[in-house]
Amino acid sequence: MVRIGYTMMTEQAGPRELVSHVVRAENAGFDFSVISDHSFPWLESQGHASYAWSVLGAAAQATSRIPLMTYVTCPTFRYHPAVVAQKAATMQILSQGRFRLGLGSGENLNEHIVGAGWPAAHVRLEMLEEAVGIIHSLFAGGYVSHHGAHFDVENARLWDLPDDPPPIGIAVSGDRSCEIAGRYGDLLIATEPKQELLTAFGAYGGAGKPRIGQVPVCYDPDRDAAVARAHDQFRWSLAGWKVNAELPGPAAFEQAAQHTRPDDVDAAVACGDDVDAFVAAVRPYAEAGFTEVALIQIGGEHQTPFLEWAETKLLPALRDL
C-alpha cells in the first residue's frame, strides 16, 4: 500500500496557517507530511515564503504522530551543510524521531539571494554530494573538520544529537543525482513518476529503500474554480525542473508560463471533486514503484475543505492503490 502524505506549501500560506493545516492533516489520517523550503514563491499570486525550519519546530510541538520532512532543503548556498546538520538533528529531537531530512541541489529562485552565483547543474551536484558527506560525518558524532572543493568545516560538532539521526532523502532528476541518492541517501525523492529514476537508484545502492513522489491537486466542488486557481498559482510547474531550477524569480516564472492555458493545467492537474480523477493522478507513482506520495492542495485558503474531503472521501480510495 502506498503511504499518502500532505504538503505544507510555504509559498501559499503563512506560518501559523501551515501549522494548523498539518495538525488537521494528522487528524485526517495522512501518513506523513512534507514542507517546501523557499525564500520566494514561484508566482506572486501565491504570496508567501515563510522560514520552513521555524514552521517545522512549531509543527513538531503541535502534532504527535505525523512524520515531518523537508521537501527539499538545499544544503549548499543559503545554508552551509554544517548548519543544516544542526537544524536537522534538533528537529529529530523536537519531533521525537519523526523527522526526515530531504535534500536537493536547489533552485536559482531561492538560492540566488546570498549572491553566490548559480553554477552549472554538474557543479551543483558536486556540491550536494560533498554537503551530504559533511552532514553524515556530523550525524556520526565527534568533531569534524573538512576542507573540500566547495566547503570548509573547522572543528565542528553537534552537541545535541538524537539517538537515531534523521534519515536523509535525496531529490533526483537524472542519473547523476540517482547515483548520489543511491550512495548516500536513505530514500529517494522525485516529482515525476519515472521508472528509470527508481531503476538507477536501485542500481546505485538504493534497492529496498523508500521512494517518495509528490503530486499537485486542486480540490473544489466547483470544478471551474479549481481549474482557474490551479492555473493562477501552479501553471509554472508545467515547464519541468530543468527549466524551473534556472529561473531567478517570480517575474521570470510569469514570463515562462505566459502561454500556458487553463486547459493545459487542467490536463496535467486533477481538479474538482472527482475522487477517481485524484486517484488516477497518484496511480502512475504507485505503478512505477513509489512507496509514498505527498499531495499538494493548490490554494492556501482552501486547505481545510480539502482536508475534510480527503479524510472522508479521498484517503479511503487511495488506500486501495
Rank of each mutant, 00 (worst) to 15 (best):
T73F: 03
T70K: 13
H112G: 08
Y71A: 07
G148Q: 06
L188H: 06
N108Q: 09
A277Q: 15
E246K: 00
R65V: 01
E301T: 14
H48S: 09
D37N: 14
H136L: 13
I135G: 01
D224A: 12
R3T: 03
F151N: 00
Q195M: 14
D31Y: 01
E311N: 06
A28E: 10
C74V: 07
D274K: 05
Q255M: 10
A49W: 04
A60L: 09
H38D: 07
A60K: 02
Q255H: 05
N155C: 01
L101N: 03
M127R: 09
V83W: 00
V2C: 05
D224F: 00
A13K: 06
D274L: 05
I93K: 07
D222F: 03
Q92M: 11
P41H: 06
R16A: 12
P248V: 01
Y204L: 07
G299N: 05
R157G: 01
Q46H: 04
Q92V: 06
E301P: 06
D273S: 06
G202N: 01
H231R: 09
M1R: 15
P284W: 13
I170N: 08
L307A: 00
P15L: 05
S237W: 04
A245D: 12
T10K: 03
V243C: 02
L321M: 03
Q303E: 12
G182R: 03
E129P: 04
T199V: 09
A28Y: 10
R211S: 15
Q233T: 11
L314P: 04
T291R: 08
T191R: 00
D164A: 13
E126C: 06
F201T: 03
D163R: 11
G185W: 10
F139W: 01
H38I: 08
M69R: 06
P166G: 09
D186N: 10
F30H: 08
A252C: 05
E111I: 11
A89D: 06
V269A: 02
F201D: 02
H80I: 07
A251F: 05
Q86D: 13
A239M: 14
F151R: 00
